[in-house]
């Protein structure tokens, strides 16, 4: 067989090869995204995602969507503009959550015995689904960034609330009021994570009283729009093909 001949001899065989190729790429892609996105998110979201006593209504709500919309934007860009596939964001988040759960279960719990109810990851899937669907319906990067990015930020807190709320029930502890999440952070000793490095409830957003989470979510959504643009272009550049001209 010469180089110019086809590797397959029939249409049926071509479909079969193409499908095998699909599964191989999906499998590899999933784990490549898992690795890259996981490292990125651990380095930028880190403790906010590790511990329940970091998951507050101000900074966690703000930081997590901003730093997590990155890979979804880039992978969406590649999968949409090159293949018209609208599942880039969900694929990323599935990979991230799969990796995070392996990490939390085997490392945090299995090796160091932190209870899972103290170190589970944040939920990002509702925002990712909406982000993908907006790209599918609009076929527009601008609309996806503006509407999808905002929705991604806004859906984060309510999407996590069913799991977080039980840990925000107050408790009286030796004369002080704490949430159950605070108590987890106090009980389950972390020698390398002292209380003062906990970046929670800091900032000047005091005008809105107790209703600060929606304001933080809007701000997060706004910055997510900007980050979406940036990473969408990263994805576009990364997904481009360049050939060297023959001399």
């Amino acid at each position: 067989m010469s180089a110019s001949q086809s590797a397959v001899r029939s249409r049926a065989e071509a479909i079969k090869v193409s499908r095998t190729f699909d599964w191989m790429i999906c499998f590899v892609l999933f784990f490549i995204i898992l690795g890259g996105y996981h490292i990125h998110y651990m380095l930028t979201g880190g403790d906010w995602d590790f511990w329940t006593d970091w998951k507050d209504r101000r900074l966690w709500v703000t930081v997590a969507p901003i730093v997590s919309i990155t890979f979804p934007a880039a992978v969406q860009s590649v999968l949409w503009w090159r293949y018209r596939l609208p599942f880039g964001a969900v694929l990323c988040v599935l990979g991230l959550l799969f990796g995070e759960w392996i990490n939390r279960y085997f490392n945090f719990w299995g090796w160091t015995y932190f209870p899972i109810n103290f170190c589970f990851p944040s939920q990002l899937l509702p925002g990712a689904i909406v982000l993908d669907v907006i790209l599918l319906l609009s076929n527009s990067m601008v609309l996806t960034a503006v509407v999808g990015g905002l929705a991604y930020g806004l859906l984060f807190y309510p999407g996590n609330w069913p799991v977080i709320a039980p840990l925000h029930v107050p408790v009286e502890y030796n004369g002080m009021v704490m949430t159950l999440a605070d108590l987890q952070g106090y009980h389950y000793v972390r020698t390398g994570t002292p209380e003062y490095i906990r970046m929670v409830e800091k900032g000047t957003l005091r005008t809105f009283g107790k209703d600060v989470a929606p304001v933080s979510a809007f701000f997060s959504g706004f910055v997510s729009i900007l980050i979406y643009f940036l990473w969408h272009f990263f994805g576009k550049w990364f997904g481009s093909t360049a050939f060297v001209k023959s001399t």
Binding site: D53, K55, D56, R57, W161, A165, P166, H168, V169, P170, M176, V177, M178, T179, A181, D182, E195, R198, V200, E201, K202, K210
Partner: peptide
């Protein structure tokens, strides 16, 4: 919210 009507922010 109906199930957990009383929640407080993290204390710091």
């Amino acid at each position: 919210n109906d199930k957990y009507p009383v929640t407080t922010p993290l204390q710091a």
